[in-house]
Nucleic acid binder design. Structure first.
Length: 295
DNA sequence: CTTACGGCCTGGGTGC
DNA sequence: TGCACCCAGGCCGTAA
């Protein structure tokens, strides 16, 4: 499941080969994950790649249009759950569920494969790009501790939901959220406004450390993820809580638990990450009052 | 403002 | 061996 470190790894791989290249041909398979497939087929051929950017989980190929007047376009790609983007020789075997082929002027090919098609692709002019990318939150590895604390500490929502909310912080998914919370020793159901200063600082540092370490190890390959050369990452070997229900906490030996927080599977250590108390106490009290009224 | 939930889509696992 | 069922979770739209 591609999150920030996986998308960053793919972006770096593409950055090594794509800039300067011209797209010579486009072939599409299923197109229900593409905003406007006709626009892609019309505008991509002849365009030249100027650069490759990543914003959160979005990948942007900056393009100069074919029409000679220097029009700037961006090919937005989101890998969703199972998206893969690889460069290869055109004669390489085609993986099942490959739905886009971009032939390049150096004879190579860029392919987009996505089993579940939760991904997204769109070719957009600059104004339209801003519309999609503008609402995104802080880039986790560029934000300061003060910015992070200001965004997180003013929200009455569970930290799990806040970390996953792309409008607060861009790029975190379920894996890196749980790994960061474990490292920071913060329970996923704590509320943003209730985090103490030192907890907020630990969380900020944990997010940075986990993401940087995952990028260094080229991402986590749980089921489908591979980089732009088709290679898996290695951070899954360093996971401390994700998908480790019932196994021992690396810090204290307590059995890791799984609960649903903000609609997501959340793995945590019940000893290192103490549960918040206020919410349970309050709902308990109101239920008691209700029962008394009914008598 | 917030949270909850269903929908999208496929493959892999489980149980009968 | 098949088949029904559930689950994984990115993000969006809708409802409460």
């Amino acid at each position: 499941m591609p999150e920030l470190p996986e998308v960053e790894t793919v972006a770096r791989g593409l950055r090594a080969t794509l800039p300067g290249r011209r797209v010579v041909q486009v072939r599409l398979g299923k197109t229900d994950f593409i905003d406007d497939p006709a626009a892609l087929e019309e505008k991509l051929p002849g365009s030249r790649v100027r650069g490759v950017r990543r914003l959160g989980k979005f990948l942007v190929l900056d393009l100069e249009a074919a029409n000679g007047n220097g029009e700037r376009l961006g090919l937005l790609i989101h890998l969703g759950m199972t998206g893969q983007i690889v460069t290869c020789a055109p004669e390489a075997p085609v993986a099942p569920h490959t739905h886009a082929f971009l032939a390049l002027d150096d004879g190579r090919e860029v392919r987009y494969t996505d089993i579940r098609r939760f991904g997204r692709m769109a070719i957009l002019a600059e104004a339209k790009q801003a519309e999609v990318l503008g609402p995104l939150g802080l880039e986790p590895l560029e934000a300061s501790e003060e910015e992070f604390a200001a965004r997180m500490g003013t929200r009455r929502a569970r930290v799990k939901a806040l970390l996953l909310d792309q409008h607060v912080l861009r790029g975190m998914g379920n894996i890196y959220t749980d790994e960061s919370l474990w490292r920071a020793r913060v329970h996923p159901a704590r509320l943003g406004t209730n985090l103490k200063g030192d907890e907020m600082r630990r969380l900020f540092r944990a997010v940075r450390w986990v993401l940087a370490e995952a990028i260094r190890l080229r991402g986590s390959s749980i089921s489908d993820y591979v980089d732009s050369d088709g290679q898996p990452g290695e951070f899954q070997l360093r996971h401390r809580v994700y998908q480790r229900e019932g196994k021992k906490c690396f810090r204290c030996g307590t059995a890791i638990r799984r609960v649903i927080v903000a609609g997501r599977s959340s793995y945590f250590c019940p000893r290192c990450q103490p549960a918040p108390r206020a919410r349970a106490a309050r709902t308990g009290a109101s239920a008691k009052r209700k029962r008394q009224r009914q008598r």
